[in-house]
Design a protein around this nucleic acid. Structure first.
Lengths: 351, 351
DNA sequence: CTTCACGCCCAAATCGTTTTGGGTTACGGT
DNA sequence: ACCGTAACCCAAAACGATTTGGGCGTGAAG
């Protein structure tokens, strides 16, 4: 047996179940049973088989397993591309997308499936060629054409955040932007803010639109004036800085700023500093999406954590259900949490 | 035949080559030959087979193909994780990593392989479980432990940018940071810059170290004083702003700024604006890494394009060679290009 | 002594494709 | 009539695993 072990290890050829069977002196059936805890195998035999398999470095051939049993599914994750929506992808930090990717990968692998990263493809033919079982599209554009192409060749699609152009399509997961926006505004109100301004990212992404709508209805419900300042999608920090300066220098300057995009907060803080306003003593600042910018700035910024890990996992689960033919009728909303930090907490006693 | 077509289309079961053969009234051998242009098949027969295959929606079973022929390889791409090197990943924009990912995916698929996105795994056991044939690690940390774990279970690893702790390991592709740094400095010199300051990202990534070394040797060769200003890895725009303000207010302020990280340039521009300096008339600004920030700011920033598309493709090719057992002895250096923009071009006649 | 159950193990079928090694027909040349 | 030769097609083997349906002893129950 030792000889066989050395031979197998030396040759470049893969070790098959047959090699293990011969080396252990049993049939391939017994090897399969021993390794998978299936049939009835003597404990001693099982041990011996496992040992020789390990010694030979045996790894079952995925293709053979797939051919025989239930094939693994391969699902693809598409992140916002630079050519598709150049500016908008910058609204949110790298953290967010990488965490989504990790979460999707983890959830997919937990079910024995694999998450592939597809090249940018155009035609239905190309997509069909790839043999994908499902696709997750992150932050789809309005009326995203990729959804039609894929669904037309029978590949189910689940999006993270809805497609703003398809309000009735239920195949998506999203953060509860409305709830977290309201919670953040309530928090600012409780901290004493009277005039809360929204630095709003001028985008058609569902997340941006929802933030604005939630802000406006909250202001209405609380009898406040609405102070929406649209911020262009270029030069994020600088645009936010300029907008904040203009607000602070204007009549009736705000005493709290809701910076909807992560990188806005940098510009806001700087504008406040230049105008001699201390954060949080003189003015409160909160962010719409958390990330390393908010975490690491000085002072650290209170921000909404959209829970990318849960979004990714939920998206994978919905997709696998659709692949299995389970009827999905409702979108999934993942509750966001709010990371309270120095930029909005005046009283140390506050939660 | 029409009946069969309807049956196959209706049932959920997959259409196999056998179904096509029966529907077309030929053997499965002929179907295979007809579809793959292999044996000798009558043109009319070939057409008929192709038609029925299309009508039935036949897609060859990947697992069966892999089992029979040369199996497809599956390679993984690991981007810098938030938990691994939090701050450094922010030095470069999302653009860069997504382009690398797309390029890797494209190059892998072109060879019939697939690019998977792995969850963060720890042990060699877990990695072996995944059945990967190779892994690409982007921006490894110093003495990156993942390299050891993977190579120890026989999975070849190629990195994008070298591991600063393993100078002799040749399995990497990199941008020619030294050459592009020198080219950028030469460009500034030609544009009339006398005192060029380097805003240097305080990082151990090979790219940052190389930028600094190239700057210092260039200064020495050109008989200039070295003005390296280390910038911390947090609050990128703000840190760069502060550093620039300090420089401009100091004695002998610079007349050109080399902002090594993409997002530095925002802070630099703002500092210049506040001090009443026009870019490029009064002071020149260039960036170490291009991206949407540099492209979209006002004025647009001249910056180095590290060619992520070529880096990704080259990494995949090197990895596939290693998987095939080809001996790789030399790293690959991808020439960067310089995107000249308004921030460093005084004379419209200049190239 | 037969029968049955049980514990342990194995041969063979199976998944869907590619490829090898012919087989059959038709036709033209001797 | 016989052979050779294209042209076209097909049966069967092979890939590596899982699973089905027994087979063979051994010991206990009838």
């Amino acid at each position: 047996m030792d000889y066989r072990v050395r031979m197998a290890a030396r040759s470049g050829a893969r070790v098959t179940i047959k090699d293990v069977a011969e080396a252990a002196g049993v049939s391939i059936t017994t090897v399969s049973h021993a390794l998978n805890d299936k049939g009835e195998v003597n404990a001693e035999t099982r041990r011996r088989v496992r040992e020789t398999a390990a010694a030979l470095g045996y790894r079952p051939n995925r293709a053979a397993q797939d051919l025989r049993g239930t094939p693994r599914k391969s699902v693809a994750l598409i992140l916002p591309r630079t050519d598709g929506s150049p500016a908008e992808a910058e609204l949110i930090g790298l953290d967010y997308y990488l965490e989504i990717a990790s979460a999707c990968a983890g959830a997919a692998f937990a079910g024995g499936n694999s998450l592939v990263f597809p090249p940018p493809l155009e035609t239905a033919e190309e997509w069909a060629q790839m043999g994908l079982d499902g696709v997750i599209i992150c932050d789809p554009s309005e009326e995203d054409p990729r959804i039609d192409v894929l669904e037309s060749v029978g590949v189910p699609v689940v999006t993270i955040e809805p497609d703003a152009g398809r309000p009735d399509r239920p195949f998506y997961v999203r953060a509860d932007t409305t709830a977290s926006t309201v919670a953040l505004l309530d928090h600012l109100k409780a901290a004493g803010a009277r005039r809360i301004v929204l630095l709003w990212a001028e985008s058609t992404w569902a997340w941006a639109l929802e933030t604005r709508a939630a802000y406006e209805s909250w202001c209405w419900a609380n009898g406040r004036g609405r102070l929406v300042t649209p911020v262009p999608l270029v030069a994020l920090e600088l645009s936010a800085y300029r907008a904040t300066i203009a607000l602070l220098d204007g009549e009736a300057p705000p005493d709290a700023v809701f910076a909807s995009a992560e990188r806005y907060s940098t510009g806001v803080l700087q504008a406040c500093r230049e105008r001699g306003l201390r954060v949080p003593e003189d003015i409160l600042v909160v962010g719409g999406v958390d990330g390393s910018t908010a975490r690491l700035s000085e002072p650290a910024i209170t921000a909404v954590d959209p829970r990318p890990t849960r979004l990714g996992a939920a998206a994978i689960h919905m997709l696998l259900e659709r692949i299995q033919g389970v009827a999905v009728t409702e979108p999934i909303t993942v509750p966001s949490t709010i990371n309270l930090r120095a930029s909005s907490t005046r009283d140390p006693a506050e939660p």
